[in-house]
Design a protein around this nucleic acid. Structure first.
Lengths: 156, 156
DNA sequence: CGCCGCTGGTTAACATGTCAACCAGTTCGG
DNA sequence: CCGAACTGGTTGACATGTTAACCAGCGGCG
């Protein structure tokens, strides 16, 4: 009764999965050995550094990264200890805080970003044709849309 | 000097990354809520259940899964506590052990497998055309090959 | 034989992620 | 104005992954 995956399907599916793992591993390792940043650190810093004042409320960061609030809170504490970000009391909402990138944090992302992009190109983007890029975008759009409809994203 | 990603490239790259995250999350959640298995558990059990005698040496499992030996050892301990696998003394190598799937473990994977494949189809495979499947396989082959050459996989 | 390096496996210590409970401030209906 | 429900954020307990150190058995070579 079950329609198992045939050979073509297996190869595409497993190939995708292991490619993704290998890519993530590779990029993580590069960031970590060259700049001492995890990709989590990098993403946090990247978002902060794109803000005009280098500041965001944690809940905004949480939405951008799709992280749970407790994960974010813990990660920010660790980054604060390493002097990559600071937490300030929020002026307009007494409950809240504001996360600001530190000079050291900014220096690190700005050093890391070009190499990171170069890695993404070298390991991935530059090996794809125009058509392959387009196909990939098409696929991920379809699949993500399908996932939100399968998945009750709780919200509204 | 840095060649940043242009719009097409960004969309393909971020799309791929978030698709992968969302897919993995979805499948993990299904396995966990329906059968109480993590995808790590599932993979271990799947490999064991494919062996004629339901047994493998840990180092063989480690190769199949690309897991570090310590991760595997710890995971097996947890699975052993839940009565999904057992560890036996290896007959032919006094250092080693043999991991065997338990009846309960077998029951769980066999119940989980058809639903899992159905999920993979519903969330992913069934939305792709022949051509897209082929493109995906091509891409992942290229990229993985590139990664091993970038990466010194220690060996020979 | 007997030493030495390699291999299979476990362990401890630590980094990171998840879940649930909690606290305090905000908001909104009555 | 007041209490109830909601929101932003932190914390503690626990699950999982990584690294390095370790132990013991295997095997080759003098």
């Amino acid at each position: 009764m079950t329609r198992w995956l045939d050979d073509r399907e297996q190869r595409a599916w497993r190939g995708l999965m292991t490619m993704q793992d290998d890519l993530a591993d590779y990029l993580e390792r590069q960031l970590r050995t060259r700049h001492g940043l995890s990709s989590a650190d990098y993403q946090v810093l990247a978002h902060l550094s794109e803000e005009p004042d280098g500041r965001l409320r944690p809940f905004q960061l949480g939405r951008l990264l799709h992280w749970e609030k407790s994960r974010l809170s813990q990660h920010l504490s660790r980054m604060e200890k390493r002097d990559l970000v600071t937490r300030e009391q929020c002026e307009t909402d007494q409950r809240g805080t504001v996360v600001a990138i530190t000079p050291k944090g900014r220096e690190l992302v700005e050093a890391a970003a070009p190499r990171h992009v170069a890695d993404v190109r070298e390991a991935f983007i530059d090996h794809l044709t125009e058509a392959e890029l387009r196909t990939l975008t098409t696929i991920s759009d379809k699949v993500r849309q399908r996932l939100v409809s399968l998945d009750p994203p709780s919200g509204t």
